[in-house]
């Protein structure tokens, strides 16, 4: 299992696309941080939890990237026909699914590390130049919460990829779900006076982890609900990948 996991990481490291995700994560973190500092008033920069929110806001684009990379790392096998060779080394398919989930968690960690390092560098230099004191506790709390969210996004993406197999289908489906279907569900649930139910949907659950406003489920509830969605998709991934004939 460890060998398979290390091989998954080597697969990712040896593809340019992976580094593209890292560069985009770095760029978005820089952009969001610069916007968060440059767009805030002098007063706002001194508000409690300003730096906490700054770090968590960057987790939103990083989380989406982590989700998409998680999808790609599984569906690449089917898109490029490498699944046959992979299964020759891992004929017990549940091992492949577990390995992919671990790889999704690892890529999430790496993306959040890059994003947070970028944010921290900008925060230290820019806020230092503005004589705004660094709130180490806020930064650490934000980074920890962002890390959990981005890791779970990567795992969720890998599980979704394992359940769907089609790369285009999974990528488009995930984005359409997040930005079209789930918001529509929110509207419908609101019309039915079931507003709270929307907090349990996948994107809302994941978003609840990195939501600095704490509007939906509490942090622990969001983590638990995200785990539930991951568990559901993992079961689908195990069934789908396990039963599929690799022709």
């Amino acid at each position: 299992m460890i060998r398979l996991y290390l091989a998954e990481l080597l697969k990712l490291r040896t593809l340019r696309g992976t580094w593209g995700f890292v560069i985009v994560a770095l760029g978005l973190a820089a952009l969001f941080t610069a916007g968060g500092i440059g767009g805030a008033s002098e007063q706002a920069r001194l508000e409690p939890q300003y730096q906490f929110r700054l770090v968590l806001d960057i987790a939103f684009p990083t989380g989406i990237l982590s989700l998409l990379l998680g999808i790609v790392l599984f569906t690449n096998e089917f898109r490029h026909g490498t699944i046959a060779r992979t299964l020759l080394a891992a004929p017990r398919r549940w091992r492949l699914v577990v390995t992919k989930l671990l790889a999704g968690a690892t890529t999430g960690t790496a993306l959040e590390f890059v994003a947070f390092a970028t944010t921290l560098a900008i925060v230290v230099i820019w806020l230092g130049a503005l004589d705004v004191p660094l709130e180490r506790g806020d930064l650490a709390d934000g980074a920890g919460r962002a890390l959990v969210g981005v890791i779970l996004a990567g795992v969720l993406g890998a599980a979704l990829g394992g359940a769907v197999h089609s790369q285009v289908g999974a990528l488009v489906g995930a984005l359409v779900w997040m930005f079209v279907v789930e918001p529509l569900c929110w509207v419908l649930l609101g019309l039915l006076d079931w507003d709270g139910a929307g907090d349990y949907l996948p994107a809302a659950s994941l978003g609840g982890i990195i939501d600095s406003q704490d509007e939906g489920l509490p942090f622990a509830g969001s983590v638990g609900m995200t785990f539930a969605w991951i568990a559901l998709l993992t079961v689908l991934a195990l069934v789908r990948t396990g039963r599929r004939d690799i022709t």
């Binding site: 060998r3 091989a7 080597l10 040896t14 593809l15 696309g17 690449n76 060779r85």
Partner: peptide, 16 residues
Amino acid sequence: HPGRSGRSHLRVLALA
């Protein structure tokens, strides 16, 4: 994978 070098492809297989 078309985007991977031949050597990297074999290294992945060897590791796995």
